[in-house]
């Protein structure tokens, strides 16, 4: 099913920020989810920014630069949902817990024993880091880590087919756009993002150029007539 073309995803910076969670009321899993998606987006943005310039093909370079600009929006968006009033040590504590939670999820889902052992080892490392930060938190903030950390580890992230979820999300949310900190219907999008997009796409869009007339074919498009 169709998604939103990359060229339509650009938006003005003022439409990139969201309301952040409240550190005093948000559930620990919400904080960990925010950090997980934020980190994932950061990784993706860095990937496109680092790998794109290694290509000599100008089309590939332009395509990666365009996608990187979208990933940059995602990093900004998901960075903004994290409560900026958390103390540095509080953030550190949630970071370590999130890393442990991610490795724990990988370990739980992995069926290959060799790989499972790698995830387990990384989980062990992260638990070590977590305990280190728990001590620092107690020492310097004189607070109880239990007010930040969950009582027990939440259900692991389900590394399984999410096709139905993706289809449902596309069906229900493809026409959404951002305006200020809110999601609105396409028809209510503000002039800032529309103007921004017009300017950015004024000389065309690399992703449009690459997608033009492209249809996936086993063995590439050259195998079509064979």
């Amino acid at each position: 099913m169709p998604g939103r073309p990359t060229s339509e995803e650009h938006r003005a910076p003022e439409d990139d920020l969201r309301e952040h969670y409240d550190r005093t009321t948000a559930a620990p899993i919400s904080k960990m989810n925010a950090l997980t998606i934020f980190s994932g987006e950061y990784q993706t943005r860095d990937y496109y920014m680092n790998i794109g310039p290694t290509f000599s093909d100008p089309v590939a370079r332009a395509l990666y630069a365009e996608i990187a600009s979208i990933e940059e929006q995602h990093v900004t968006q998901y960075g903004s949902i994290i409560d900026p009033n958390e103390t540095w040590l509080e953030k550190w504590l949630i970071y370590e817990a999130t890393e442990a939670y991610n490795y724990y999820s990988c370990m739980t889902a992995e069926t290959n024993p060799r790989l499972k052992a790698i995830w387990e080892r990384f989980l062990d490392y992260e638990l070590g880091h977590l305990h280190q930060v728990i001590e620092l938190f107690k020492k310097f903030e004189r607070r109880d880590p239990a007010e930040i950390l969950p009582d027990k580890l939440p259900d692991p992230i389900a590394f399984q087919s999410q096709r139905e979820f993706v289809r449902k999300t596309l069906r229900e949310e493809m026409a959404l756009r951002a305006r200020g900190t809110q999601y609105v219907d396409k028809s209510e999008e503000g002039p800032a993002s529309q103007q921004y997009r017009l300017q950015l796409n004024s000389t065309g869009s690399p992703s449009d150029a690459v997608a033009r007339n492209y249809r996936w074919q086993p063995g590439t498009e050259l195998a079509k007539s064979a």
Binding site: M1, P2, P5, S7, E8, V59, N201, G204, S205, P206, D208, A209, V210, A211, R212, N213, Y214, R215
Partner: peptide, 11 residues
């Protein structure tokens, strides 16, 4: 699924 969006860009 559109094969092209605005048609103005080409490789």
């Amino acid at each position: 699924i559109p094969q092209t969006t605005d048609g103005s860009s080409t490789r």
